[in-house]
Design a protein around this nucleic acid. Structure first.
Length: 422
RNA sequence: GGAGAAAUGGCAGAGUGGUCGAAUGCGGCAGUCUUGAAAACUGUUGAGGGUCACACCUCCGGGGGUUCGAAUCCCUCUUUCUCCGCCA
């Protein structure tokens, strides 16, 4: 969430920035400033009362010590009124603070100046494109048909065991999946990211820290018995490693990577575009994640983009990079680049990675700070990106590498699969 | 799942009703010494709110209570450790 002092000092810029998300935040921002002012006023009143009752207590203590019980008892009576007043004020203060927080939770991050305004994904800005789109043979088919033809992914079996959106990978399909995970992790650790294995369920505080809660709980599976949530992305457990941490400046930058399954309810998304592997309730993803000094977080974002590009180059998949417009930008992000692979047999682009800088938006909720060179505690910047989301990479490989007599495995993956063809 | 013990500053660890935001050690920062570094020595160093700056207020796992006054007493929740049981 945004910091109140920042809002106070950059009111117009915040409103202008949020306008790129097609939000007129004028009212909300004014309310934040008013609520905060009220809150501070109440706090000052309360502090004064508490100060008075503190000094009375001290006096009473001294009077008792010197045996002047009567005088002490007179002072005691005075404190009861102060107590009532402070209780009432405290209640008002809590209400104000709660109202302020509720409002702050509703305000998304301010987009970076690079973010184009726009309403939907149609307004995203293509900033890079690479790779030749292969010319396939005339009988080329989409991946869900290839999956059946070569018996490597069984969607119906998943329906039986769990439900729609939980595919079963078999044989060379399962092996290819595992190969991709190992390959991605190797690339990431070679680039300096430390590998982590993270919990797949998180508590409420973690969901809150990265911004999934309180508003987007509908996206996550909720284990009500234990009040835990299945992770929608490794970003949640990964970033929460640093919740309530005070780091040294020399600890930065921090880079971690991890493979996890991801669980998403995807309530309300159905239709032709969700066939096969295109949209699932459970899928695998390898994530990269950074904690950065604010002065170099955008450099880090560029490095992450370059890193993902390098992987796609090696896989020899045709891809493009989009800079998300205000209307498509995630709630917590200040700047996001989406990577899309061209799926030849479906004749459409599939999103396979999303790399974002959250600046201090998550860190503020997480209380993720570092001690800067002035000795002051400062919020760090958090970033993350997929490297990569498995199902659509798999779809892209199956479709783009299909030939009349089988599916070729990209060269860089052969050492991991142990076979060259499906 | 049952029984017991515990939770204190960046970390470790004292503190059992007022003089405690809290001893001490480590770490951090600054300095002395040194060609430089290390060691040693000296000083300094919790967080949040508030203020132009002070003052002042809050915080000793979370929540509630007793008291004029709570890190300290009571209730409750969570977590950790030890023992027992079960178990991949």
């Amino acid at each position: 969430m945004l910091q109140v002092p920042f809002i106070r000092e950059n009111k117009d810029a915040v409103i202008k920035g949020l306008a790129k998300r097609n939000i007129d935040a004028t009212q909300m921002i004014n309310d934040v400033i008013d609520l905060d002012e009220d809150r501070r006023g109440l706090q000052t009143q309360l502090d004064n009362i508490l100060a008075e009752s503190n000094s009375l207590s001290k006096e009473i203590g001294n009077l008792y010590k010197s045996g002047e019980t009567q005088k002490a008892n007179i002072l005691k009576e005075k404190t009861s009124q102060l107590k009532e007043d402070s209780k009432a004020l405290n209640e008002q203060l809590n209400e104000k603070a709660e109202a302020l927080n509720q409002l702050l939770y509703k305000i998304p991050n301010v987009p970076n100046t690079l973010v184009p305004s726009g309403n939907s994904e149609d307004d995203n800005e293509e900033v890079f494109r690479k790779g030749d789109i292969p010319v396939l043979h005339k009988d080329a088919i989409p991946h869900w048909e290839l999956a059946k033809k070569y018996d490597i992914i069984d969607f119906e079996l998943g329906n039986k065991i769990t439900g729609a959106g939980f595919p079963v990978y078999k044989g060379k399909g399962a092996r290819l999946q595992r190969a991709l995970i190992a390959y991605f992790l190797d690339k990431n650790t070679a680039a300096g990211y430390t590998e982590y294995q993270l919990p797949h369920l998180v508590n409420e505080a973690s969901g809150f820290g990265t911004g999934q809660l309180p508003d987007k709980e509908g996206q996550m599976y909720h284990v009500t018995e234990d009040n835990l949530y299945l992770i929608p992305t490794a970003e949640v457990p990964g970033t929460n490693i640093f919740r309530d941490e005070l780091l040294n400046e020399s600890d930065l930058p921090i880079g971690i990577t991890g493979y996890t399954p991801c669980f998403r309810r995807e309530a309300g998304s159905y239709g032709a575009h969700v066939r096969g592997l295109n949209r699932l309730h459970q899928f695998d993803k390898v994530e990269i994640l950074r904690v950065e000094h604010p002065s170099r977080s955008y450099k880090a974002l560029d490095e992450m983009v370059e890193h993902v590009k390098m992987i796609l180059d090696e896989l020899k998949l045709p891809y493009r990079i989009l800079r998300l417009c205000g209307g498509d930008l995630g709630f917590t992000s200040a700047l996001t680049y989406d990577f899309e692979v061209f799926s030849t047999a479906q004749d459409r682009w599939l999103e396979i990675s999303s790399v974002s800088n959250f600046e201090t938006f998550q860190a503020n909720r997480l209380k993720l700070r570092f001690k800067n060179s002035d000795g002051k505690n400062e919020l760090a910047h958090t970033l993350n990106g997929s490297s990569l989301a498995l199902p659509r990479v798999l779809a892209g490989i199956l479709e783009n590498y299909q030939t009349e007599d089988g599916i070729k495995i990209p060269d860089v993956l052969v050492p991991y699969t142990g076979f060259e063809k499906i």
